[in-house]
Design a protein around this nucleic acid. Sequence first.
DNA 1: TGAATACGCTGTGTATACAATATCGCAGGA
DNA 2: TCCTGCGATATTGTATACACAGCGTATTCA
Lengths: 250, 250
Amino acid sequence: MAEREVDRSVSQTVKAQLALRDQILSGALRPGERISELQAVETTGASRTPVRMALVRLEEEGLLEAIPSGGFMVKAFSERDISDSIELRGTLEGLAARFAAERGVSARELEPLKECLAAIDELLRQVPISVDAFSSYVTLNARFHALLTELSRSPPLIRQIDRASALPFASPSGFVMAQSALPEAQQILIIGQEHHRVVIDAIENREGARAEAIMREHARLAVRNLRLALRNRTHLDLLPALALIKSATD
Amino acid sequence: MAEREVDRSVSQTVKAQLALRDQILSGALRPGERISELQAVETTGASRTPVRMALVRLEEEGLLEAIPSGGFMVKAFSERDISDSIELRGTLEGLAARFAAERGVSARELEPLKECLAAIDELLRQVPISVDAFSSYVTLNARFHALLTELSRSPPLIRQIDRASALPFASPSGFVMAQSALPEAQQILIIGQEHHRVVIDAIENREGARAEAIMREHARLAVRNLRLALRNRTHLDLLPALALIKSATD
DNA sequence: TGAATACGCTGTGTATACAATATCGCAGGA
DNA sequence: TCCTGCGATATTGTATACACAGCGTATTCA
């Protein structure tokens, strides 16, 4: 134990998990690289048990992959893996929107969504949008998606959506940031906001099919834009999560 | 250590996980019941570290729930949780079928699916179906769904479908067994088989939307039948997985 | 007699020691 | 020179010990 000071305010497992995730997302650990427990113990300061725990959790999140002979490696993603993940989440959110519409949502429950919508409207009034406003947009957008998911009132579905969003590039914030690299960024944000407006309207009028369709379109748009952004890799370093893309895209 | 003989042929973690899952699914552990590590150590014969590992994995599978103050409890499911889980998997499989259709599948890749289909046809020729044949049907059906999922060639999607099928009542075998309790069981199996036939046809003709629609319908049918089966709880003990349903369905 | 405090026990989180296995390198023989 | 086998080393899997926290109970004081 010696002089290693232990921070008791937060569990060692969580601490190790966060530290490891940072290392992966920041690119300190390259995709495909094997990650050894001992090495992780040194860099995180926790001991082997919590580190192992953290590694297992990160595997579940999808950031790591178990090596059959033992140990873990940083997972590498192809461009298609990423677009599939986004479309996957869109499909799940579509189902959530349909559940919300079919099961009925009170005006009171819809209130936070509408507030979110209005706040984003306010932000988008700026042309061009400032860096600060964009950052607020990312937060509000994530909040909107989370609230929408909750409306489904289906714990199994919510759980699954959370898992699908665990990969940084598949999270609402992730793909908004990817799109921001495009010159048409502002236009894209405005279209996205239009989708948000439509889905609320569809849920209010209990039109399940329409609510579902618009969320899927929302995701498909994101996929198209991500492809564009990857073509002209200009400001792509904006999105550290993309460090996970394997260099040799197949 | 003393006289505890250790089985080295399979990892202790896996052994503990299987033993615990058996206990949960067999109903030895009631839903909502707290499960203590020490108790699990005694019943599984493994030591605390692998047991903890197994508990974490079972939590990820969705069978257990972490208690904030520490420890785990057996998760309880409402009837709606179960039908949502089935519909969720249907939606995911629909996406897989669409991917398969849109991305194209060679005749060679479709071969195993068709063999599966033919084998099931053979089984269904018996009227009424024997217990043995039914058991073969369950296996073949699971195989069909797994093969179909593979055809999507989308690792993220396959991964998600696997997770969605982890809960026993959400797996292909699970809901087939639930439906078997109904008097119209034979008829239901025949309709299901028709769905299988259509999805292969749609994939062959690259009709993504049709392939997707039929898989969703497939799941919706299962949900309807599950509801029926739960109404007249006659042979419901056929499905041990349903031990997880909380007694007071909300 | 009731309430409050203290003590003890059960159980989890963490650390570390030990055992088993896989991989890599080196040496010897074909 | 290449292949194979054996050994050493490194790393994971497993077991257990220790510490701290939460909770229940019992005892004492008002």
